[in-house]
Design a protein around this nucleic acid. Structure first.
Lengths: 178, 178
DNA sequence: TGATCAACAAGACTCGTCGTCTCGTTGCTC
DNA sequence: GAGCAACGAGACGACGAGTCTTGTTGATCA
């Protein structure tokens, strides 16, 4: 879809919030009305572009070492956040603050599926005897991934692949068996 | 300052992004030009209102038990995020995504000072022999506080005081001595 | 071949908000 | 009481979201 590609390129390349529907329409060589025929709002286009572009991004590899799997996955999240996709995510989270519907849809279509993958990996780790069974999975995942999400949204520090290891270093002793 | 009070009340009470300069001016019984005489932009007013309202909020108590201090502080952050101030923070982080100047000022005036307090407490903990000296302080703080910041910005789960304890439970074994 | 119709491009339009500008008023200072 | 800075009130221009109109295209079916 030309519209989604144009939205992805424009939002990913420039600073969030600076991309108008007119510019997306112009870049996609499409009439504005055509965009509103298929999407209810500007942000819905951007959300669709994000979901469309990240369907296969950052998969969760399942080896026999849960900790290594998490570290690997965190590393791919760092790469994703540092890519144009990171700009799009920033824009959508920003928009979510003033639009509950976008917030709900963002959680349902982007956040939820990824959270479920992480959660499933955590539970498998428990079954495999590598992770304690009495942890609060939500809190643990918020601590692990929240570190990166916060850097994405606040921008107080850059994200580097090595940070993935350090995050796991910080959290793992609290959840590992023994 | 009537303008700051009005901005705080309006933004804190309604959903972020729905408060215009006109409505702030009307609520403060002030001409719009007066606002622009003292602040460069709408968001600057909101940021000022936030800083003004939280000068003394969530202090860091320093007992001889670093872990208890962090848990207590996290609890106060939960309260802050669940209050109208949380709405204002959400709005400012959202605005930061499209305005680098606001982002920089938000980090400098709100995020920075609070981060320094946490960092200082962490370092004192190291001196006191309760925290390992080889931790990455930034990553540890991002994991601890990022869990709450992420819930604030994504809204996937509510924040409850008990979560403060669980966050500390999850992270502490990774940073405590022994 | 020709009628029908949905999707389309182009662009005018309304509406709300940001930020600027003008003008007349207030209240303080010398 | 003259001068002046801050003020209230409100008009104004710019801009982007979303709607609406008009004329065109291209596929389907008789």
């Amino acid at each position: 879809m030309r519209v989604l590609d144009a939205a992805f390129d424009l939002v990913g390349a420039s600073s969030p919030g600076s991309v108008s529907v007119d510019s997306i329409a112009a870049a996609a060589d499409v009439a504005k009305q055509t965009i509103y025929r298929w999407w209810p709002s500007r942000t819905a286009v951007v959300l669709d572009a994000l979901v469309h572009a990240t369907l296969k991004a950052t998969p969760f590899r399942e080896s026999d070492d849960v900790r290594a799997d998490f570290e690997r996955h965190l590393r791919s999240v760092v790469t994703l956040f540092n890519s144009p996709t990171g700009q799009i995510i920033r824009e959508l989270v920003a928009e979510s603050q003033s639009d509950p519907e976008i917030a709900a849809e963002f959680r349902q279509r982007f956040w939820g599926p990824r959270r479920e993958l992480s959660q499933a990996r955590l539970e498998r780790g428990i079954e495999m005897g590598q992770i304690r069974a009495d942890i609060d999975a939500e809190v643990v995942l918020d601590a692990i991934y929240g570190a990166l999400w916060t850097r994405l949204m606040i921008g107080h520090l850059p994200m580097r692949p090595a940070d993935a290891s350090r995050i796991v270093d910080a959290v793992w002793p609290g959840i590992a068996v023994d």
